[in-house]
Design a protein around this nucleic acid. Structure first.
Length: 283
DNA sequence: CGTGCTGTTGCTAG
DNA sequence: ACTAGCAACAGCAC
Protein backbone atom coordinates (compact mmCIF):
# COMPACT_ATOMS: atom_id res chain seq x y z
CA UNK A 1 0.00 0.00 0.00
CA UNK A 2 2.49 2.64 0.92
CA UNK A 3 4.81 4.34 -1.50
CA UNK A 4 7.13 7.25 -0.81
CA UNK A 5 4.46 9.86 0.09
CA UNK A 6 2.61 7.48 2.41
CA UNK A 7 5.79 6.40 4.19
CA UNK A 8 6.91 10.03 4.45
CA UNK A 9 3.54 10.92 5.97
CA UNK A 10 3.81 8.17 8.58
CA UNK A 11 7.43 8.97 9.40
CA UNK A 12 6.61 12.65 9.94
CA UNK A 13 3.61 11.73 12.06
CA UNK A 14 5.67 9.39 14.20
CA UNK A 15 8.39 12.01 14.57
CA UNK A 16 5.91 14.60 15.85
CA UNK A 17 4.51 12.20 18.40
CA UNK A 18 7.63 10.35 19.54
CA UNK A 19 10.68 12.60 19.25
CA UNK A 20 12.25 13.20 22.68
CA UNK A 21 9.81 10.77 24.25
CA UNK A 22 10.91 7.68 26.15
CA UNK A 23 9.68 4.25 25.08
CA UNK A 24 8.77 2.49 28.31
CA UNK A 25 8.13 -0.93 26.80
CA UNK A 26 7.69 -2.92 23.61
CA UNK A 27 5.14 -5.74 23.55
CA UNK A 28 5.09 -8.33 20.77
CA UNK A 29 1.82 -10.07 19.96
CA UNK A 30 3.24 -11.76 16.89
CA UNK A 31 6.71 -11.58 15.44
CA UNK A 32 6.12 -13.09 12.05
CA UNK A 33 6.12 -10.50 9.30
CA UNK A 34 7.95 -11.22 6.03
CA UNK A 35 10.78 -12.27 8.26
CA UNK A 36 10.84 -12.89 11.98
CA UNK A 37 11.21 -9.64 13.97
CA UNK A 38 14.31 -9.86 16.18
CA UNK A 39 12.62 -9.21 19.54
CA UNK A 40 15.75 -8.85 21.63
CA UNK A 41 17.41 -6.41 19.25
CA UNK A 42 14.29 -4.25 18.94
CA UNK A 43 13.83 -4.10 22.71
CA UNK A 44 17.48 -3.26 23.17
CA UNK A 45 17.25 -0.24 20.87
CA UNK A 46 13.90 1.04 22.15
CA UNK A 47 13.06 0.05 25.72
CA UNK A 48 13.88 2.70 28.26
CA UNK A 49 15.39 4.99 25.64
CA UNK A 50 14.53 8.39 24.23
CA UNK A 51 13.69 8.70 20.53
CA UNK A 52 16.21 10.99 18.86
CA UNK A 53 14.84 11.15 15.33
CA UNK A 54 12.46 9.45 12.90
CA UNK A 55 12.75 9.78 9.14
CA UNK A 56 12.11 8.02 5.83
CA UNK A 57 14.64 6.38 3.50
CA UNK A 58 13.28 4.67 0.38
CA UNK A 59 10.03 3.10 1.64
CA UNK A 60 11.48 2.48 5.10
CA UNK A 61 10.83 4.33 8.33
CA UNK A 62 13.99 4.71 10.41
CA UNK A 63 13.77 5.34 14.15
CA UNK A 64 16.89 6.43 16.00
CA UNK A 65 17.68 6.19 19.71
CA UNK A 66 21.04 6.44 21.48
CA UNK A 67 21.30 2.63 21.23
CA UNK A 68 20.81 2.23 17.50
CA UNK A 69 18.24 2.18 14.74
CA UNK A 70 14.92 0.51 13.97
CA UNK A 71 14.01 -0.11 10.32
CA UNK A 72 10.35 -0.60 9.51
CA UNK A 73 8.78 -1.34 6.12
CA UNK A 74 4.98 -1.30 5.88
CA UNK A 75 4.73 -3.82 3.04
CA UNK A 76 1.25 -3.58 1.52
CA UNK A 77 -0.97 -3.17 4.56
CA UNK A 78 1.20 -2.13 7.50
CA UNK A 79 0.13 0.84 9.59
CA UNK A 80 1.14 2.62 12.76
CA UNK A 81 -1.66 3.93 14.95
CA UNK A 82 -1.31 6.40 17.78
CA UNK A 83 -3.63 5.24 20.55
CA UNK A 84 -4.24 5.57 24.28
CA UNK A 85 -2.43 3.33 26.69
CA UNK A 86 -4.07 -0.13 26.86
CA UNK A 87 -6.25 0.52 23.80
CA UNK A 88 -7.94 -2.50 22.30
CA UNK A 89 -5.70 -4.25 19.83
CA UNK A 90 -6.87 -4.94 16.30
CA UNK A 91 -6.98 -8.42 14.85
CA UNK A 92 -3.54 -8.05 13.28
CA UNK A 93 -1.68 -5.93 15.79
CA UNK A 94 1.89 -7.23 15.88
CA UNK A 95 3.57 -4.94 18.34
CA UNK A 96 2.80 -2.14 20.76
CA UNK A 97 5.23 0.60 21.72
CA UNK A 98 4.24 2.25 24.98
CA UNK A 99 5.70 5.72 25.46
CA UNK A 100 5.70 8.42 28.10
CA UNK A 101 3.35 11.04 26.66
CA UNK A 102 3.55 13.43 29.60
CA UNK A 103 5.11 13.15 33.05
CA UNK A 104 2.47 10.76 34.32
CA UNK A 105 0.53 9.64 31.24
CA UNK A 106 1.38 6.86 28.86
CA UNK A 107 0.20 6.28 25.29
CA UNK A 108 0.87 3.61 22.71
CA UNK A 109 1.79 3.18 19.08
CA UNK A 110 0.35 -0.02 17.57
CA UNK A 111 1.86 -1.65 14.50
CA UNK A 112 -0.93 -3.42 12.59
CA UNK A 113 -0.32 -5.44 9.41
CA UNK A 114 -2.97 -7.93 8.16
CA UNK A 115 -1.06 -9.24 5.16
CA UNK A 116 2.27 -9.35 7.00
CA UNK A 117 4.34 -8.20 4.04
CA UNK A 118 5.95 -5.62 6.29
CA UNK A 119 9.36 -6.10 7.84
CA UNK A 120 11.15 -4.76 10.87
CA UNK A 121 14.61 -5.05 12.30
CA UNK A 122 17.05 -3.29 14.60
CA UNK A 123 20.77 -2.57 14.42
CA UNK A 124 23.08 -1.29 17.11
CA UNK A 125 25.09 0.96 14.83
CA UNK A 126 24.02 4.15 13.06
CA UNK A 127 25.32 3.22 9.62
CA UNK A 128 21.99 2.52 7.98
CA UNK A 129 23.51 3.05 4.53
CA UNK A 130 25.57 -0.12 4.92
CA UNK A 131 22.66 -2.35 5.92
CA UNK A 132 21.61 -4.93 3.30
CA UNK A 133 18.15 -3.35 3.11
CA UNK A 134 19.71 -0.14 1.78
CA UNK A 135 22.96 -0.92 -0.02
CA UNK A 136 21.37 -1.80 -3.34
CA UNK A 137 18.98 1.14 -3.39
CA UNK A 138 18.92 3.63 -6.23
CA UNK A 139 18.51 7.37 -5.81
CA UNK A 140 15.92 9.29 -3.83
CA UNK A 141 13.68 11.00 -6.38
CA UNK A 142 13.26 14.20 -4.36
CA UNK A 143 16.96 14.52 -3.56
CA UNK A 144 18.53 13.90 -6.95
CA UNK A 145 19.07 17.23 -8.67
CA UNK A 146 19.59 15.84 -12.16
CA UNK A 147 16.98 13.11 -11.98
CA UNK A 148 16.24 13.09 -15.72
CA UNK A 149 19.90 12.68 -16.63
CA UNK A 150 20.44 10.05 -13.92
CA UNK A 151 17.47 7.98 -15.12
CA UNK A 152 18.36 8.24 -18.79
CA UNK A 153 21.89 6.98 -18.07
CA UNK A 154 20.58 4.05 -16.02
CA UNK A 155 18.09 3.22 -18.78
CA UNK A 156 20.45 3.48 -21.72
CA UNK A 157 20.80 -0.30 -22.12
CA UNK A 158 17.42 -1.40 -20.74
CA UNK A 159 14.78 -2.71 -23.07
CA UNK A 160 12.24 -3.34 -20.34
CA UNK A 161 9.10 -1.22 -20.15
CA UNK A 162 9.50 2.25 -18.68
CA UNK A 163 6.78 1.47 -16.13
CA UNK A 164 8.71 -1.49 -14.70
CA UNK A 165 11.96 0.47 -14.92
CA UNK A 166 10.53 3.24 -12.72
CA UNK A 167 9.46 0.71 -10.11
CA UNK A 168 12.92 -0.89 -9.86
CA UNK A 169 14.26 0.15 -6.47
CA UNK A 170 17.82 -0.42 -7.63
CA UNK A 171 17.27 2.51 -9.98
CA UNK A 172 14.87 4.72 -8.06
CA UNK A 173 13.38 4.26 -4.60
CA UNK A 174 9.94 5.13 -3.34
CA UNK A 175 8.00 5.01 -6.61
CA UNK A 176 5.51 2.15 -6.68
CA UNK A 177 2.54 1.25 -8.83
CA UNK A 178 0.34 4.28 -8.22
CA UNK A 179 2.95 6.97 -8.69
CA UNK A 180 4.62 5.21 -11.64
CA UNK A 181 1.25 5.22 -13.46
CA UNK A 182 0.53 8.82 -12.53
CA UNK A 183 3.98 10.13 -13.45
CA UNK A 184 3.82 8.44 -16.88
CA UNK A 185 0.41 9.96 -17.49
CA UNK A 186 1.63 13.42 -16.50
CA UNK A 187 4.65 13.09 -18.80
CA UNK A 188 2.48 11.64 -21.62
CA UNK A 189 4.51 8.45 -21.91
CA UNK A 190 3.02 5.04 -22.77
CA UNK A 191 3.85 2.55 -19.97
CA UNK A 192 5.13 -0.05 -22.44
CA UNK A 193 7.72 2.22 -24.02
CA UNK A 194 11.14 0.53 -23.74
CA UNK A 195 13.13 2.47 -21.15
CA UNK A 196 16.07 3.03 -23.50
CA UNK A 197 13.80 4.52 -26.16
CA UNK A 198 12.88 7.71 -24.30
CA UNK A 199 14.25 10.93 -25.71
CA UNK A 200 16.27 13.34 -23.58
CA UNK A 201 13.38 15.72 -23.50
CA UNK A 202 10.96 12.98 -22.40
CA UNK A 203 13.33 12.06 -19.55
CA UNK A 204 13.23 15.66 -18.39
CA UNK A 205 9.41 15.68 -18.55
CA UNK A 206 9.25 12.42 -16.63
CA UNK A 207 11.71 13.51 -13.93
CA UNK A 208 9.74 16.71 -13.45
CA UNK A 209 6.46 14.78 -13.27
CA UNK A 210 7.80 12.32 -10.69
CA UNK A 211 8.98 15.09 -8.38
CA UNK A 212 5.87 17.17 -8.77
CA UNK A 213 3.49 14.29 -8.09
CA UNK A 214 5.42 12.96 -5.09
CA UNK A 215 5.58 16.43 -3.54
CA UNK A 216 1.88 17.05 -4.06
CA UNK A 217 1.01 13.63 -2.64
CA UNK A 218 3.11 14.29 0.47
CA UNK A 219 1.31 17.60 0.93
CA UNK A 220 -2.03 15.81 0.79
CA UNK A 221 -1.00 13.09 3.22
CA UNK A 222 -0.63 10.26 0.70
CA UNK A 223 -3.15 8.16 -1.19
CA UNK A 224 -5.75 6.04 0.62
CA UNK A 225 -7.04 3.42 -1.80
CA UNK A 226 -8.26 1.07 0.85
CA UNK A 227 -5.98 0.35 3.80
CA UNK A 228 -3.67 3.30 4.07
CA UNK A 229 -4.24 5.41 7.16
CA UNK A 230 -2.20 8.12 8.80
CA UNK A 231 -1.06 7.89 12.39
CA UNK A 232 -4.32 9.19 13.85
CA UNK A 233 -6.25 6.81 11.56
CA UNK A 234 -7.25 9.52 9.03
CA UNK A 235 -7.14 8.91 5.30
CA UNK A 236 -4.74 10.67 2.93
CA UNK A 237 -6.38 12.83 0.29
CA UNK A 238 -4.26 12.31 -2.81
CA UNK A 239 -6.76 9.81 -4.22
CA UNK A 240 -8.74 12.83 -5.42
CA UNK A 241 -5.75 13.85 -7.50
CA UNK A 242 -5.27 10.56 -9.35
CA UNK A 243 -5.71 10.85 -13.11
CA UNK A 244 -5.44 7.21 -14.17
CA UNK A 245 -4.70 4.84 -11.29
CA UNK A 246 -7.74 2.68 -10.55
CA UNK A 247 -9.81 4.41 -13.25
CA UNK A 248 -10.11 1.65 -15.89
CA UNK A 249 -13.06 2.22 -18.24
CA UNK A 250 -13.60 5.72 -16.85
CA UNK A 251 -13.09 8.82 -18.99
CA UNK A 252 -9.63 10.40 -19.04
CA UNK A 253 -9.79 13.59 -17.00
CA UNK A 254 -7.87 15.45 -19.71
CA UNK A 255 -9.29 14.17 -23.02
CA UNK A 256 -12.40 12.10 -22.07
CA UNK A 257 -11.14 8.99 -23.89
CA UNK A 258 -11.45 5.73 -21.95
CA UNK A 259 -8.68 4.85 -19.48
CA UNK A 260 -7.21 1.39 -20.15
CA UNK A 261 -5.59 -1.21 -17.92
CA UNK A 262 -2.85 -3.64 -18.83
CA UNK A 263 -0.70 -6.05 -16.82
CA UNK A 264 3.05 -5.47 -16.70
CA UNK A 265 5.33 -7.68 -14.62
CA UNK A 266 2.23 -8.91 -12.83
CA UNK A 267 1.03 -5.44 -11.84
CA UNK A 268 -1.85 -3.39 -13.22
CA UNK A 269 -0.89 -0.36 -15.28
CA UNK A 270 -3.47 2.31 -15.98
CA UNK A 271 -3.06 4.73 -18.86
CA UNK A 272 -4.91 6.86 -21.35
CA UNK A 273 -4.27 5.49 -24.87
CA UNK A 274 -4.89 8.90 -26.34
CA UNK A 275 -2.75 11.05 -24.00
CA UNK A 276 0.00 8.40 -23.74
CA UNK A 277 0.59 7.28 -27.30
CA UNK A 278 3.19 4.64 -28.07
CA UNK A 279 5.55 6.34 -30.51
CA UNK A 280 5.95 4.45 -33.77
CA UNK A 281 9.72 4.57 -33.78
CA UNK A 282 9.66 2.70 -30.44
CA UNK A 283 7.58 -0.23 -31.66
C1' DC B 1 -19.43 -20.31 -2.05
C1' DG B 2 -15.43 -19.27 -5.45
C1' DT B 3 -12.56 -16.00 -8.29
C1' DG B 4 -9.79 -12.31 -9.01
C1' DC B 5 -8.12 -8.17 -7.45
C1' DT B 6 -4.86 -5.24 -4.05
C1' DG B 7 -0.27 0.11 -2.46
C1' DT B 8 5.93 -4.67 -1.93
C1' DT B 9 9.90 -6.96 -2.86
C1' DG B 10 13.13 -10.68 -3.11
C1' DC B 11 13.85 -15.12 -4.93
C1' DT B 12 13.70 -18.33 -8.91
C1' DA B 13 13.90 -19.92 -13.42
C1' DG B 14 14.30 -19.17 -18.13
C1' DA C 1 23.01 -10.01 -17.34
C1' DC C 2 18.05 -9.26 -17.80
C1' DT C 3 13.51 -9.93 -17.06
C1' DA C 4 8.99 -12.13 -16.10
C1' DG C 5 6.70 -14.66 -12.74
C1' DC C 6 5.73 -16.03 -8.35
C1' DA C 7 5.27 -16.45 -3.35
C1' DA C 8 4.51 -14.61 1.26
C1' DC C 9 -0.81 -13.14 3.34
C1' DA C 10 -5.61 -11.28 4.48
C1' DG C 11 -9.55 -9.04 2.91
C1' DC C 12 -12.75 -7.26 -0.14
C1' DA C 13 -15.76 -6.71 -4.43
C1' DC C 14 -18.31 -9.26 -7.51
Amino acid sequence: MPELPEVETIAKGLAEVLCNKVITKVDFLSTKLREEIPIKAVKKVLEGHKIKSIFRRAKYIIIQTPKGLIFSHLGMTGKFLNLKELSAKEKHTHLILTYKKQKTTLAAIHYVDPRRFGRMTAISSFAWEKHPWFVQNGCEPLEEKNLGTYLSQKASTKSLAIKSFLMDSKVLVGVGNIYACEALFAAKIHPETPAKALTTSKWQDLAYAIKKILKKAIKEGGTSIRDFRKLENQKGYFKQSLFVYGREKEPCLKCKKTVKRLIQAGRSSFFCPSCQKQKEENL
